[in-house]
Design a protein around this nucleic acid. Sequence first.
DNA 1: CCGCTGCCTTGATCCAAGTCAAGGCGTAGC
DNA 2: GCTACGCCTTGACTTGGATCAAGGCAGCGG
Lengths: 196, 196
Amino acid sequence: MSDGDEVTTYSNLLSGVVKLTKILADGRQQIVGLQFAPDFIGRPFKRENQLDAEAATTVSVCSFPKSMMDRLIVSSPPLEHRLHQQALKELDEARSWMLTLGQKTAAEKVASFLYYVACHVDPERSHLRGPVEFELPLTRAEIGDFLGLTIETVSRQFTKLRKSGAIEIVHNRSIKLLSLDQIRRHAKLDHESWHF
Amino acid sequence: MSDGDEVTTYSNLLSGVVKLTKILADGRQQIVGLQFAPDFIGRPFKRENQLDAEAATTVSVCSFPKSMMDRLIVSSPPLEHRLHQQALKELDEARSWMLTLGQKTAAEKVASFLYYVACHVDPERSHLRGPVEFELPLTRAEIGDFLGLTIETVSRQFTKLRKSGAIEIVHNRSIKLLSLDQIRRHAKLDHESWHF
DNA sequence: CCGCTGCCTTGATCCAAGTCAAGGCGTAGC
DNA sequence: GCTACGCCTTGACTTGGATCAAGGCAGCGG
């Protein structure tokens, strides 16, 4: 339910999407991660690290005070194990995005983003071959901040994907991927390389 | 001592620098992390994840079979805690680099890289004000792969930093930072935002 | 000593993505 | 209904970094 401040508690994300952002002194912003339910939000053992968490959609969360959780973690190996697992998952994701940010073209970035979202909004669907329709959790400007592109470039790439027949833009935020294979090809994701 | 293959063991890095890379089908490559002694190398609980580890310099490591470590981790909460801490540290770093890759200019990227290396090759020096001299663990081409730039752009930015008086290029790989403050300013790192 | 070979630098040109500018479309408020 | 505001698209043009093309320089082997 909150919306846009430094993370000083731990939270369980029950529904919705939260974006993690980093920002430069001059205002340039990078989204460094998206959290989907039922992710855990918060940085154990440390005051949150120059990073803001902001609701991207309507969200519901269950929060705990930091001090309490930090004590709980120490006394509960299974809890630490669960958090460790999530940290590793987020690390894998962050590194996948580094490849995308550093090496891919605008077209490949946008296709990668669509595929990523499609896999997350509904994990079941991800291996289907057929069309997948969903709501984007981000505006064009936010997608730009995620991919290191401007809003105009993002918009142009959407248009290009639409004209190429890979996607249908049902209505601004509502996208239908007509062929996951084709998206994957646009994104330069060969079968196995994406693992969400 | 090894040099360039998929990680199937766990290793303790005793000396030297190891680069973690991701690669696209068409050969584009991204360095997603550098490991300095005494880091731990390996992805717990999972076959290493589309990621290669390669020695960047002469290294010495101490390796263990994966199966053994995975059992050890489960039975030793303190070990898991240590690995968890390192995963979180690497996650913080990966996200800092996402900001760099997505938002910074070539000049800012190169300055950020120099500052990053300076902080790691000799952690003591990192808060000194005066000049710092060290050997780059990477070639220009590798720096390019780290920063999402070409070798030529990296080289030109080095030249620009040299002419601006921020660095001295003692000899290709051997760099002297004449003013950490100036480098930090070039890198758009305001005092606290880098935390290695 | 000479001639490779591997890196690195520099210059000239090109192009993908950024910037600037103008609208379009949907919806909320009056 | 009309207006205003937020978000998205499209077009014209500019530009930072990529690409293409020469060299330079050190270290090594013969």
